[in-house]
Design a binder for these strands. Sequence first.
DNA 1: CAATTATTCAATAGAGTTATTGAATATGAT
DNA 2: ATCATATTCAATAACTCTATTGAATAATTG
Lengths: 214, 214
Amino acid sequence: MDKREFKDIVYNEISRISKAMSNPNRLEIIDFIANGEKCVEDIALQTGISIANASQHLQTLKRERLVKTQKKGVYVCYSLASNEVYLVWKSLRDLTLTISPYIQDTINEIREYNKFDAPITLDKIKERNDVFLLDVRPKDEYDKGHILNALSLPIDELNDRLNEIPKDKLVIAYCRGMFCSIADEAVKILHTEGYNAKKIEESVLDYQLSENDK
Amino acid sequence: MDKREFKDIVYNEISRISKAMSNPNRLEIIDFIANGEKCVEDIALQTGISIANASQHLQTLKRERLVKTQKKGVYVCYSLASNEVYLVWKSLRDLTLTISPYIQDTINEIREYNKFDAPITLDKIKERNDVFLLDVRPKDEYDKGHILNALSLPIDELNDRLNEIPKDKLVIAYCRGMFCSIADEAVKILHTEGYNAKKIEESVLDYQLSENDK
DNA sequence: CAATTATTCAATAGAGTTATTGAATATGAT
DNA sequence: ATCATATTCAATAACTCTATTGAATAATTG
């Protein structure tokens, strides 16, 4: 095997992985199942595509070993094959946020339209002990992994369980990450109830991976 | 703009960047110009594709803002737009190395065939003071950035400048990274000349980015 | 200004990607 | 076993990507 053959194989193999990640639906699937394993129908519902189409995208991800499956009765549950998959997604996301004016404009537009506060970052609240962390995702996602000391309070139960939230603290809500709107909704509810509330944009995996670096 | 519209824009925008990086030739171009700006012809020669084809790939990268250009007389020099671009490439490369058996087999095969020693890592030689670091890339790439304390000794000049290398140290050669063979050739020459030599697989940007994290 | 060289543009054919449709398969419940 | 449900498979049409070709443009040299 000469140099050229070797390089052809190597760059081709890496591009296969990149191709598997270069479709908007598949990126959304990766971002979604990073919160815990999901069955095909859930994934189809979340991303707004047909089940057959979701299945097809999942096959593509599986063929390239980016996701793994676990059969649970009649359901097939898909989850990320490893944290490295999320790391690629994260670096891609962060790069796009810095180089695409269109994505920046879109995010600013939606923030202004909804009159959202600028989100706070996890780093800034770490040393403070006057904050109360809220995981507003569904309970099963919390169980698969959550930020240290966060309370699981799924958005659907928020109105009924407000008594669990201290009025004298800064309430910090988080959800599936920066493109998920659940924490925004939670903050909206909390504001109308008189709480001092903000969201962070980090997902659980963003948090766990930054903890790993230390 | 509703949630779905927002997500469609965001994931679509990120997939555009991913698409721009999901072609073997373009990945090789990114890996290559990470060592310093290069003109279209150099890039075509390095990757073994036609000039028109290289130009077309470079347009694609430029359209997505992954590379920047600088006109130098009749030449157009392309370089990476930012280190974040390299970070995506690096995470993609590292992921593929862990999940693709084919790429692992290919690398092992070429190592066995050439009877290469297992490469040493930069971390392991950092504290040692009995090593002598050699940058065997062309001089202009060394000038654009190199590993601290390395001597620039382009592979073409190696045979004529052996007197600059101390016989009593472990000689460590590096080149453009793990898919580049220049350091392998250098080690081969050094072995026949009686030196104790090894290569490291890190590129200059791998080194600089790992230094940044500290 | 004409010639030379580096790069880009435009058109195109062949290959690959994607959403849709409806059928096929597989699991668990009745 | 039969039925309902979850998932996958297969075929397809519309669309996109890529390498090639040769022409066009732009900067430099004689």
